[in-house]
Simulated scan of single mutants.
Amino acid sequence: MVEKKRVRTHEDLEVYQRAFEAAMAIFELSKRFPLEERYSLTDQIRRCSRSVCANLAEAWRKRRYKAAFVAKLSDSEAEAAEVQVWLKFAVKCGYLELNTGRELYGTYNHILGSLVKMINQPEQWLL
C-alpha cells in the first residue's frame, strides 16, 4: 500500500509544485524572447505563470472559508488558462519551438485539471 504524502503547506501540493516548475521553465525560456516583447508577451507570460502559484498560496491560507478558497482557486485556474494563450502566441511568433510549447501547454492542462478537481471537491481541503 502506498502512503499518501501529508499536505502541510501549499508547497506540498503537487499542483503547486508542478505550477512552480512550469513558471520557472517559462522564465528561463522567455529570457530568449526578443527585447521588443519585454513589456508585452514576456511580461504577461511570466506574470500569469507566477500568479498561478501565488493564487494557490492564497487559496491555501483561506481554507477556513469555502467561498474564499474556491474563489482563489478559480483565479489560479484563470491564470493557468491565460498562460496557455501566451504560450500559443509565443509559438506562433516563433519565440518557442512547437514541441516546447506543446509540452508546456500539456503541463498547464494537468494543472488546470487539478485545480478544477479542487474547485469541484473543496471539502477535503477545508479546515
Results as ranks from 00 to 15, higher is better:
R50F: 07
S51A: 14
V52S: 00
V52N: 00
C53S: 08
C53M: 11
L56D: 04
L56N: 02
L56R: 01
A57R: 06
A57M: 10
E58R: 02
E58A: 07
A59I: 07
R61N: 12
R61G: 11
K62W: 10
K62P: 01
R63S: 08
R64A: 15
Y65H: 14
Y65G: 06
Y65E: 13
K66Y: 06
K66D: 10
K66S: 12
A67C: 04
A67S: 14
A67D: 15
A68S: 13
A68M: 12
A68H: 09
F69R: 02
F69L: 08
F69C: 05
A71E: 13
A71W: 05
K72I: 05
K72S: 12
L73D: 02
S74G: 11
D75F: 06
S76K: 03
E77C: 09
A78R: 08
A78G: 15
A81M: 09
A81W: 03
V83P: 00
V83H: 01
V83Y: 01
Q84P: 00
V85R: 03
W86I: 06
L87K: 02
K88G: 15
K88A: 11
K88Q: 13
F89D: 04
F89K: 02
F89T: 07
A90N: 02
A90G: 04
V91A: 07
V91M: 03
K92A: 15
C93H: 10
C93G: 07
G94T: 10
G94H: 06
Y95K: 03
L96V: 10
L96W: 01
L96S: 02
L96G: 01
L98T: 14
N99S: 14
N99Q: 15
N99P: 00
T100A: 03
G101P: 00
R102N: 15
E103M: 13
E103I: 11
E103S: 14
Y105P: 00
Y105D: 13
Y105L: 08
G106H: 03
G106N: 07
G106T: 10
G106D: 06
T107I: 11
Y108R: 04
H110T: 13
H110Q: 13
L112K: 05
L112V: 11
G113P: 00
G113M: 06
G113E: 09
K117N: 14
K117W: 09
K117F: 10
I119V: 12
I119M: 09
I119K: 03
N120L: 12
Q121D: 13
